[in-house]
Design a protein around this nucleic acid. Structure first.
Length: 379
RNA sequence: GGUGGGGUUCCCGAGCGGCCAAAGGGAACAGACUGUAAAUCUGUCGUCGUAAGACUUCGGUGGUUCAAAUCCACCCCCCACCA
């Protein structure tokens, strides 16, 4: 049986199934980020309760601490962290971008200075595959080079070339056996249409179990992000999953689903939860605002998460303002619930042929942000 | 009763003749956050004004000085030690 199956479409939007060694994932899906082997502030049981189907881990962070070999000795990332559902691991490509001051990119790979102790490490395509195999990742990512928005065409071309060559080496280093751990390639190219296309074609020539789109939502205008997705749509194989890395806001996700993307991950729900920004059916709210000090109502009347069922806005504000640890847990649970519900809702809407109406409800909840997507017409 | 140390903008606390509306924290009030070096970061924070600027503040009252939160006198509080 193939590892990916499209069950239905509505326009370009798709609803499908992704089969992995640790279970089946229903797409479109939002994947909570658990960089160091923990989705911050949330226990695995809580994640399962709110319907999380697959979470992320990070190659760079887990390699540095506690070390991928240690993780392997303790049951892989699943056993070590007590999460028996699927795990996708990022390759460290994003750290090429976010830790740019601490690394040097060469043709062979990326040389890092550890942000923890300054020690030097070399990440090659083969190395990141070996690490991800130690972690026993269900969905491994190739080593890629992620550049910031605004990078020159010349730099972007070089990064695309690196990423393509590294994709080949990752593919050679790992081909899934019967167990079926998967390897995804990553399309780069900043905002240059020719490079994005070139990158995608190089990857499809090699052949992967899925295709990620990286280097977006890093500051470029929204219409450029959508334009890029639209251009990739006919190039990427229809029978393989598509993963928009690091995205995004609820609206980003809804718009990207409309362009045929199946998988998402983002730190926003968890990071914003810790910083007091909560997502509701009425839009974003900052729970620390004075106006919620006496508000006895639930955070979101349309949400049935543990936080919304049991606590008032006034209490959630109090916990946040008081820096109580429970604040992190409740807020994170709520935001993750919101993102997971969005993905479930999108899937259902696609299967029922009413995705446009579904999308419109989210556009209405974030009118100001939605205006930023204007100009994303057909190319 | 004596000796010493203090009273600064909401709180703590620097300043000790002009560069002071007054450092730095905290609190408060807003904002940001997109493959997590993030329980982080940014802004505002005496009054009026978009601003330039004007005005009112450093326990109280007088005084010295071109100029005082800063120096002097007296007074009122607080703290420590001694009787």
């Amino acid at each position: 049986m193939d590892h990916f199956e499209v069950l239905g479409t509505d326009g370009a939007a798709r609803a499908g199934l992704l089969r992995t060694a640790h279970g089946v994932v229903e797409t479109p899906i939002f994947m909570p980020v658990g960089t160091v082997g923990s989705v911050k502030a949330v226990a695995p049981d809580d994640l399962a309760d709110i319907g999380a189907q697959i979470i992320l881990g990070n190659t760079y962070h887990l390699y540095l601490r506690p070390g991928d070999e240690l993780v392997a000795r303790h049951g892989g990332l699943h056993g070590f962290s007590s999460w028996d559902k699927p795990i996708l691991t990022d390759s460290g490509g994003f750290q090429v971008f976010s830790l740019s001051a601490l690394r040097k990119v060469t043709d062979d790979g990326v040389e890092f200075r550890s942000h923890l102790d300054g020690s030097r490490h070399l990440f090659t395509p083969e190395k990141v595959i070996a690490i991800q195999r130690n972690l026993n990742s269900d969905v491994m990512m190739q080593l890629d080079e992620c550049l910031p928005y605004g990078a020159s065409h010349k730099d972007a071309a070089r990064a695309v070339e690196h990423s393509a060559r590294w994709a080949m080496r990752c593919r050679e280093a790992y081909r899934p056996g019967a167990a079926g751990n998967l390897l995804f390639g990553i399309v780069q190219g900043v905002t240059y249409p020719d490079l994005r296309e070139q990158s995608a074609r190089a990857l499809t020539d090699i052949g992967f179990e899925g295709y990620a789109i990286g280097g977006l939502a890093v500051g470029e205008p929204k219409h450029m992000m959508l334009g890029c997705l639209r251009r990739l749509h006919p190039i990427l194989p229809a029978d393989k999953p598509r993963y928009l890395m690091g995205v995004g806001t609820p609206l980003d996700i809804v718009h990207a689903i409309a362009e045929g993307v199946d998988m998402f991950d983002c730190v926003l729900p968890t990071r914003n939860a810790r910083n007091g920004t909560l997502y509701t059916s009425q839009g974003k709210i900052n729970i620390k605002r004075k106006e919620y000090a006496e508000d006895d109502g639930p955070l979101d009347p349309e949400c049935s998460c543990y936080a919304c069922r049991n606590f008032s806005r006034a209490y959630l504000r109090h916990l946040y303002v008081s820096k109580e640890l429970l604040s992190f847990r409740l807020n994170s649970l709520h935001n993750l619930t919101y993102f997971l519900k969005l993905a479930r809702g999108a899937r259902k809407a696609i299967l029922e042929g009413r995705f446009q109406a579904f999308k419109a409800t989210y556009e209405a909840a974030y009118p100001d942000e939605d205006a930023l997507f204007e100009g994303a017409g057909p190319e």
